[in-house]
Amino acid sequence: MISLETQHFNINRILLLIIGLWPYQRSLLVEFQLILLYGILMTFIVFQLTTFITAECTLDLIYKVLSSAFFYICFAIKYNSFWINADIIRTSLKQLQDVCNEITDKNEIAIIEKYGDKAKRITITILFLGMFYQVTFTLIYIWPYIHHIMAFTNKSRSHSSVHIMTEYFIDQEKHSYLVTLHRHAACCIGLLAMITTGTMLLTYAQHTCAMISIACYRIEHAMDILLKGYKNEQKSCEEIIHAVNIHRKAMNLINFLISNFSGSYFCLMAAGVLCLSCNLLRLTSFTGNIGQLILSLTNLIIQYVYLFLANYTAQEVTDHNEYLFTTVYNVRWYMAPIRTQKMILFLLQRGTKSFHLILGGVFVASLQSAASRALPYRTSPFFILPSKNKNMVKQFLIF
């Protein structure tokens, strides 16, 4: 039996436990951990926005503050989305575990293992990218201190930084180390929240792809059984029924997750667009501050990487769903008995409807959407088939 929590979600489980977002074992200590970490992140956002109270409000100040503030708001939205949707995550994981418990075929188990390993590799890669950003963020702030020491000068230097503007209403020179600790703690918490929540959803999507691949395998296996002799028709029909069931569960699982996170994704997209715009404006007003340049570039890189991974994962789910239709079309259904052909008919009818993941209720997630402003809806997957094949399938559906 496949244990998702200990085999495929073990890295995600550890990361979520660190920031208190693992949906199980929610004790009072975990709730305190959540409030503390989320409070650190939110107060850092607030202390950036309070700059508008004490500083002269200019256009340069506005996009300089908002470029970093909205970046951390994106972190806060992702953190909050898993906090308020803990029951949804727990229910989804239970549904996925129930599906895995029903799988006994060694080839189907191998498919689950393949996609689970892929999800773990992607999670580890993203985690290392996050660590690289955290190291870069730290070096930006400690490099002036290192340069000051290496210069062997006795002149005192300011501890304040202009890369991320904040207003704590205290003497920041006197309490510079507390301010630095708060800043780096907020960055670490926010970055870890973005990585853990994103990779958790990515792992769910990979297992959805695995379930669709198992449906393809079952259809092919059903036709192989049938072609060995008509006396195996009952067993073949059962395999097709199992394929339809696991495909339906896969679609229900991914739609259940996306629909419950639609509000969070809508807010995330709005904050992300504003963050991208402000950082691009900040780059165009480069004044020779290397630290500001590096910080803006890394913020943009992280957002574009996140955008690419989210759309790439959604594209994989869409491609797997279309491949299921292609598999049904390519099997030798015309050699099957009428009863089996009627069952395959339902799969072909389901394949005539394009499947897309809609993020936030407004954005069609796909690689084409990531590269352009919108993804044109296709009225039918027949457009991917040659005209000769289209007519054949249409005739079969009419029959």
Rank of each mutant, 00 (worst) to 15 (best):
M1W: 08
L4E: 03
E5C: 05
E5D: 12
N10W: 09
N10M: 04
P23L: 00
Y24F: 06
Y24W: 06
Q25I: 02
R26L: 13
V30S: 06
V30C: 06
F32E: 10
L34E: 02
I35C: 11
M42S: 08
T50C: 11
T54C: 10
L59C: 09
D60V: 07
Y72G: 05
I73S: 07
Y79C: 12
F82A: 07
D87V: 03
I89T: 13
V99D: 09
T104R: 01
T104F: 09
I112D: 06
R121S: 12
I122T: 15
I124S: 08
F128K: 11
G130S: 08
T136Y: 14
F137R: 05
H147I: 09
H148M: 12
H148R: 05
I149W: 15
M150H: 01
M150C: 06
F152S: 10
R157Q: 10
S158K: 00
S158G: 02
S161R: 07
I164D: 10
T166N: 00
E167K: 07
Y168V: 04
K174F: 14
K174H: 13
S176N: 13
S176D: 12
L178A: 11
L181N: 08
L191W: 14
A193E: 02
C209T: 08
A215R: 00
C216E: 03
C216N: 04
C216S: 07
H221I: 06
M223A: 04
I225H: 06
K231I: 07
N232M: 02
E239L: 15
E239V: 14
M251P: 02
M251S: 08
N255S: 10
F256I: 05
N260M: 05
A271N: 15
R282P: 01
R282D: 07
N289S: 13
G291A: 06
I294C: 04
T298I: 03
L300W: 05
I301Y: 10
L309N: 06
N311H: 03
Y312H: 09
Q315P: 04
V317K: 00
D319C: 11
D319G: 13
N321S: 04
E322N: 03
Y323K: 10
R332S: 12
Y334Q: 01
M335I: 14
R339Q: 15
Q341R: 04
I344N: 02
T352M: 14
S354N: 15
H356I: 11
I358C: 07
G360S: 07
F363H: 01
V364W: 09
L367G: 06
S369P: 00
A374F: 14
Y377V: 12
P381S: 08
F383D: 02
L385C: 10
P386V: 05
S387V: 15
L397M: 05
L397N: 03
I398W: 14
